[in-house]
Computed example of a mutant assay.
Amino acid sequence: MPINIIIQEKRKEIGLTQEQIGAYLGVSTPAVNKWEKGYTYPDISLLPALARLLKIDLNTLLCFNEGLTEQEIDHFNNEVGATISTKGFEAGFIMSMEKIREYPNCDKLIHSIALLLDGALIMYGASIDDKEPYEKQITALYERVAKSDNDQVRDNAIYMLASKYLARTECEKAQEMLELLPERTALDKTELEARLFIKQDKLDEAARLLERKLLNVVSEVQMILMNLAEIEIKEGESQKASHLAELSQKVMKLFELGDMQALAIPLHVAILQKNVEDSISFLKSYFLATFTPWDISKSSLCQHIAVKVKTSKAVKEEVVKEKQENLGKQVRLALLSEFENNPKYMFLHSNAEFKQLIEDLYSKC
Rank of each mutant, 00 (worst) to 15 (best):
A241V: 08
A241S: 06
A241E: 01
A241Q: 04
H243M: 13
H243I: 15
L244C: 06
L244E: 03
L247C: 11
S248I: 11
S248H: 05
Q249V: 12
K250Y: 11
V251C: 08
V251P: 07
V251D: 05
K253R: 15
K253D: 07
F255C: 01
F255G: 00
F255V: 05
E256Q: 13
L257I: 10
L257Y: 04
L257F: 06
L257A: 03
L257M: 14
Q261A: 15
Q261G: 06
A262E: 02
A262R: 06
L263I: 10
L263S: 02
A264V: 14
A264W: 13
I265H: 02
L267H: 00
H268W: 08
H268K: 13
V269M: 05
V269C: 05
I271P: 01
Q273M: 14
Q273R: 13
K274L: 09
K274P: 09
K274G: 05
N275P: 06
V276A: 05
E277L: 11
E277V: 14
D278R: 14
I280W: 02
S281D: 09
L283N: 03
K284L: 11
Y286H: 12
Y286R: 10
F287W: 07
L288M: 12
A289F: 01
F291V: 04
T292M: 06
T292P: 00
T292Q: 07
W294F: 14
W294L: 07
I296Y: 00
S297R: 14
S297D: 10
S299Q: 00
S300H: 05
S300R: 09
L301Q: 02
C302I: 07
Q303H: 03
Q303P: 02
Q303C: 02
H304P: 00
H304F: 08
H304Q: 09
A306D: 03
K308W: 07
T311P: 02
T311Q: 00
S312N: 09
S312G: 11
K316Q: 10
K316H: 14
E317Q: 15
E317M: 11
E318G: 00
V319L: 11
V319P: 00
V320Y: 12
V320W: 10
K321D: 06
K321C: 05
K321V: 05
K321G: 02
E322H: 10
E322N: 10
E322M: 12
K323W: 11
K323C: 11
Q324H: 09
Q324V: 06
K329E: 06
V331D: 02
V331Q: 09
V331I: 15
R332E: 01
R332K: 12
